[in-house]
Design a protein around this nucleic acid. Sequence first.
DNA 1: GTACGCTGCTTGCGCAAGCAAACATATCAA
DNA 2: TTGATATGTTTGCTTGCGCAAGCAGCGTAC
Lengths: 182, 182
Amino acid sequence: MTKRSSAPAATKAGIRPLNPAEEAAWRALARAILVVPRTLEAELIEAHGLNLAEYSVLMNLSEHPDRAMRMSELADAVALSVSGLTRVVERLSRQGLVTRVRCETDARGQLAHLTDAGFATLEAAYPRHLEGVRRHVMDHLVDVDLAKFADAVGNMAAAEPGPPARRSAGRPPSVPAKRAGR
Amino acid sequence: MTKRSSAPAATKAGIRPLNPAEEAAWRALARAILVVPRTLEAELIEAHGLNLAEYSVLMNLSEHPDRAMRMSELADAVALSVSGLTRVVERLSRQGLVTRVRCETDARGQLAHLTDAGFATLEAAYPRHLEGVRRHVMDHLVDVDLAKFADAVGNMAAAEPGPPARRSAGRPPSVPAKRAGR
DNA sequence: GTACGCTGCTTGCGCAAGCAAACATATCAA
DNA sequence: TTGATATGTTTGCTTGCGCAAGCAGCGTAC
């Protein structure tokens, strides 16, 4: 999503246009960025009624001690706005997959806690999702140096604030970043 | 978005879990898929009031003969549902960036046509967007074999139907796939 | 301890986008 | 022709999510 075949010349500001190899890479990535998550999400919804955000929440919770996380921490982990996460957790808790408990050490905070039912749902959804990830993503990376790929792609994601859930790195300088509760 | 650190064992269906390198690659990609488009879109909106879909429409039109495309063709190109595209084009046409003309050879069809104003807007938006693509994406791919990358990532996108704008390849067998227009 | 500001979460609202139904035109069969 | 069916686009409705405002609890200064 970058170039018009007319006007191939360099831009006023002197930013060098993409060369053909770069352009091919970018166009491929741009398309994958649209298609891959939709495909995986469609599979997830069809099989288990979970969208990617919901699956992601369950997965993140399952990986944390006590299967619980603070809302804001979780929002960050799944790259959702805090308000967005509130609603996701609300949906999940209506289905009994997650419960919310007040944080003992900071009554403002909420812990989202994965229930046994939630864990079971995740376990049920996992194989199919894994299969989708393999088929739609990993299987195409056979000729690629995975370490370099992960590094490169990881840096894209890490780079910028990129709304909404602003990176917790790059916080306003000198904020101690304490965290009371677990 | 794939694994729980508990339950590392193979799944019932026998799908092999991701090994650490694969997992790192997938997690990096999963995050980039969320973050990169948001970052680029935020820049685009801030600078020119265009979201990615709108920019994409303008760009695709600019690359086609007569700067015009059929609605459904365009929907496919920008990976939007047909109804979604209708509204994007409607927004753009309210801004005078695009006009709609009935297709001469098939009165059911509509041609979205990029206006001079639309082209000018695209030209204005291009440098900044290009710069964003370089900074957020290409600059991180320096150590990567671009050809392999493009190939791999391109196949991800090409692989599956993946709603909504179902791939025009893989159409129900034996439909002639004729196209009257333009 | 009370007042003030800050933080964490939720709520109200708006927007973008998908699905399905409606609509318009085309095409084909009889 | 006239109907029956297929195709291209739009419209109605719903959903997910972000922003900004609201609210409750915390921390600090006095």
